[in-house]
Design a protein around this nucleic acid. Sequence first.
DNA 1: GTGGTCTAGACCACC
DNA 2: GTGGTCTAGACCACA
Lengths: 131, 131, 131, 131
Amino acid sequence: MQFNTHSPIYLQIAGYIHDLILNGIWTDGERIPSVRDLAVELEVNPNTIVRTYAVLQEEGTLDNQRGIGYFTAPHAKDLVLKKKREQFIKTELPSLFSSLKVLDIPLEELETYYRTFQKDAQSNENKDETK
Amino acid sequence: MQFNTHSPIYLQIAGYIHDLILNGIWTDGERIPSVRDLAVELEVNPNTIVRTYAVLQEEGTLDNQRGIGYFTAPHAKDLVLKKKREQFIKTELPSLFSSLKVLDIPLEELETYYRTFQKDAQSNENKDETK
Amino acid sequence: MQFNTHSPIYLQIAGYIHDLILNGIWTDGERIPSVRDLAVELEVNPNTIVRTYAVLQEEGTLDNQRGIGYFTAPHAKDLVLKKKREQFIKTELPSLFSSLKVLDIPLEELETYYRTFQKDAQSNENKDETK
Amino acid sequence: MQFNTHSPIYLQIAGYIHDLILNGIWTDGERIPSVRDLAVELEVNPNTIVRTYAVLQEEGTLDNQRGIGYFTAPHAKDLVLKKKREQFIKTELPSLFSSLKVLDIPLEELETYYRTFQKDAQSNENKDETK
DNA sequence: GTGGTCTAGACCACC
DNA sequence: GTGGTCTAGACCACA
């Protein structure tokens, strides 16, 4: 049995940046924080960020202009969305379905909970608007 | 940002035992490995297993008889199933649904994948029978 | 703070013998087990029993006839009863009363529970007779 | 026969803390000694105190804030009082009543002693006020 | 043999 | 500083 297994920090940060892009916090083509700045913000060694940015550049999510800085790619959001969807369908769905099977929860029950979830989400949005 | 998020080993082992019971590897009322034996098998300190077993006894999943050993409770499987279902609905479903929303996957699409999953599972079972 | 404090075993055994006499299991003037026999029965070092019998002889509960053995005194039961009553009133009652005070339980409430206790005891006796 | 009957130290300390709360020495919501400090004070291993505090937190008597310390719960005193009353009525009263029966002390006699006890207690209080 | 408790000492995350 | 966890090793009671 294996305990205390993590994905490496630089990959955790890559996932974090994916989420920033998906949620529109970093928009397509925008200039993003320098390696040094992000390292300070996340309280992490700059080399870790270097590695993260390299991975994201490799996969096409980020562009680099030497001497200027890093930018999100022109279609970063679509690209990340596609990537996450594939990963979700290939790895998360099977584990979800096997949970449903073991726990003996039919798909119909899921739909019920889904409607409740959507109603809750909506009422929260309304609250936010009122603020 | 949070890196290094673990649940403690003794709880990871508790979860592992839940799965053993759910999957019928440990059946209701059966004698289970002694503290020392399981500690050797999982390569942890006996005290860690003591703590795991104490938690599971507290929640009613295990019984024990001093000087004899630990046993799964008479209705251990039902109890664990109930517990896991509650936990699944309360904590995993919301995160699933929010993934669906972010990834823009309608519930209907899930059903399609579900049917594929079930067919695959069935064909695997048939293979097993053929063995 | 003091943990793990016991009365010495020889005194615990003295109390045990008091109870035997009070409950009529050892009657007045009866010959009682030899030091050696009682030591075996209670799984205790014979010297411990020697000490117990010495204490009980000192307080008048036991008599010793050299070469023959130990006997309960002619009025052993009355003597023990008197002793226990005194001890009860002097040491146990105050602690009981202070519990009642701290827990805010009026004496009247005690009477209620007492009646319940007596009824239970009686019904148990009836069961015994039926046997 | 059973000699050497202890409750474990961590439970003895739990009982000791119950008393501190009942007697108002630790008041509701108050910060209590750190694990290490109490361990030093009671001359036990810190892990023993950890276990005691865990038990008391489990039963709702204590709260804690990570990195800050332990606190008595907002209604700790009421909670402990309720717990102790139940335990007193269920386990101590029957043994009291059976003592009364064996010693042939009628309940009325108890009342006499009770009045004496109350008078003594009152005169002690007056002394305290005079101080 | 079993589990239960306790100690000593270490390392970690949080504040 | 705080609590939380884990290890190593010891001793105990029960069966």
